[in-house]
Design a protein around this nucleic acid. Structure first.
Lengths: 254, 254
DNA sequence: ACCAAAATGTGTATTTTTTACACGGTAGAA
DNA sequence: TTCTACCGTGTAAAAAATACACATTTTGGT
C-alpha cells in the first residue's frame, strides 16, 4: 500500500467542505494502518471592538456538529511545519505576511476521533480590518476569546494554551502591533493590552512606558471620526526594535 | 500493507544498538510509503563541576559516525507525547520522577536522512550524582553544553533552542533545583545560575533575592568536605511555591 | 599553636523603576 | 454655548535593583 497524502487535494482546495472530506478519508486510512498523522492547527487572533477575537470554522464532522474548530490541516510530505502553518493562513485569510509562531504540540491519544493525530499549534496575529475582505468563506467567524462555548476535539484546550501564551508573549515582544492598524493611537494600544491581559492600566504610566522604549514613531497624523478630541497616531518602528540590543539578564523572580 | 509500529521492539529494548536498528527499518518503511514519522527527542540537562551538561548518545548510523545525538525514539501509537518522553527518560536514566517539559517541535523536511520525521523536543533536568548509577550504557555521556562539537541530524539546533529556553525558564520558574542535590548551599545555587546564564552575580544581592522569596528552607545542616568555612544547607519548599499566588502582571518590556 | 587561604554571613546608601495621582485643553454633539 | 468625553502632561512617593566592605569560620600548611 502507499499512502501518499495528495497535497493538491488537501492543500489547494479552498473552503472547508471538500478539503475536510478528503482529510477524513485520509485519517481513516491512517487509523486502519495504525499510523500517527500529523497536522497543524492555527490559532488566529484578531482585535476588534476592543476585544480579542479568534478565527474559527464550523466543524463539518457529524460528531462535532455545531461546534467550532481551529483552522487546521494535515502536514504535507514536502513542507515543513512552519510552511504548513503559513499555507493554512494563506488559504483561509489570503495572507502571507503575518506574524506566526509555533506554540505547542498536542498529542493525546484520543484527541481526534477518526485517527491518532498529533497536532502542532501555531499562533498568528492579524489585523481584522485589513484582512476582512479576503475571507469569503461563510463557515468562518471571529469569536470572542473570553466568552466561548464548547469547541471541537481538544481545540478549547489548545486555544487556552495559546491565549496564555499570548498574554505572556505580548509583554515581552511587540506582537501586539500586528493586531492594530499600521497607525494607531495610544488609547487603542492600551485598550489592546487591557483586553488581552484583562487588567486596568494607568493611562499616564502606560504612555510613559511606551515612549521610554523609544519605539513609537509619531506620524504627525491624528485620529478622525472620534466624537472627542482626536489623539495622535503612531506607528511601531520595527527596524529600531531589531537593532536594539536585548538585555540578557531579566532577573530571577518566581 | 499495515505499518503497526511494534511498541515492544522499539520501546522496551534497552540500550541503543538494537532499538536503533529497528527504528531505522521502520523509518525506511515510512519513507517508502511517503508517511511522516513522529518522534520525541529529550534534551536532558545536568549540572556537574559547576558546568551545565547534556546527556548524549553516540549515533549508530554510519552517516553520523562519531557524532552525538539526543535521546530520542519514535512515538508509539498508544502513548501520548509526554508519555513517550517519560518512557525515553525511564529507559535511559531509570528515572520517572523528573522534571520534564515540552519545548518545541522540529519538522524541517530534510532533518532526518532516512525519512520524513517530525520530532518534538522535551527538556528534562536531573541531578547527575543522584542518577549516575542508573546509567549503564557506555554509549551515553554527559557533555558540556558550552563547548560542544558537531551533533547528528539537527540536534545541535534543537539543543540550542532548548538551552535558550532553559536560560529564560530558569529565571521564571524554580526548575534549577532539579539539577542540584535536595540540600544545597547558596553558593551552589548561585554557581548554577551563573553557569547557565553566563553572568556574574553579586553574592549578597543573590542571597537577598532568594531569601526574600521565602521559598528556601534552612535544614540546619552544614556543608562538609569543603576546604573552607562550610555554608548552610537549604532545601527548596515546593509546597509553599505551589500555594504561592502568582502575579498576573509582569509589565511590558521589550 | 599559629598563620594563611578561602569562602561564609551580614547591612546600608544610591540609583533606578514603578506606582499613584489631577487638571487644563480640544473636538464633536446637542 | 454648553456638555461630554477623551487627550496630553509632571511630580512625588514607594519599591526594587544595584553597588559595595568587613568581620567570621573553617581547613590546611608550617
Amino acid at each position: 500500500m502507499s499512502l501518499k497524502i495528495p497535497s493538491d487535494t488537501v492543500s489547494e482546495t479552498p473552503g472547508s467542505a471538500s478539503a475536510h472530506k478528503n482529510v477524513t478519508t485520509i485519517l481513516k486510512q491512517l487509523e486502519s494502518d495504525g499510523i500517527i498523522g500529523i497536522s497543524v492547527d492555527c490559532v488566529i487572533f484578531g482585535f476588534d471592538d476592543n476585544e480579542l477575537k479568534v478565527l474559527l470554522i464550523k466543524s463539518d464532522m457529524e460528531r462535532y456538529d455545531n461546534k467550532w474548530s481551529l483552522l487546521g490541516d494535515l502536514v504535507n510530505n514536502h513542507e515543513d511545519l512552519d510552511q504548513a502553518a503559513y499555507r493554512i493562513l494563506k488559504e483561509r485569510t489570503g495572507l502571507d505576511d503575518v506574524y506566526l509562531e509555533q506554540v505547542k504540540g498536542f498529542g493525546a491519544v484520543g484527541r481526534h476521533p477518526a485517527a491518532r493525530v498529533v497536532t502542532i499549534a501555531y499562533c498568528s496575529l492579524i489585523n481584522i480590518e485589513h484582512h476582512k475582505l479576503k475571507i469569503l468563506d461563510n463557515e468562518l467567524h471571529w469569536h470572542r476569546v473570553t466568552t466561548l462555548s464548547e469547541m471541537a476535539f481538544d481545540h478549547r484546550q489548545i486555544l487556552d494554551v495559546c491565549y496564555e501564551w499570548l498574554q505572556k508573549r505580548i509583554q515581552e515582544h511587540p506582537l501586539g502591533f500586528s493586531l492594530l492598524p499600521k497607525q494607531f493611537s495610544l488609547r487603542e494600544l492600551q485598550n489592546l493590552y487591557e483586553a488581552i491581559l484583562d487588567v486596568k492600566l494607568d493611562r499616564r504610566n502606560f504612555r510613559k512606558k511606551f515612549f521610554s522604549m523609544g519605539l513609537l514613531e509619531d506620524t504627525g497624523e491624528l485620529e478622525s471620526d472620534v466624537p472627542h478630541r482626536p489623539g495622535k497616531l503612531y506607528k511601531f518602528n520595527y527596524d529600531k526594535y531589531q537593532k536594539k540590543e536585548r538585555k540578557k539578564w531579566f532577573g530571577i523572580d518566581f
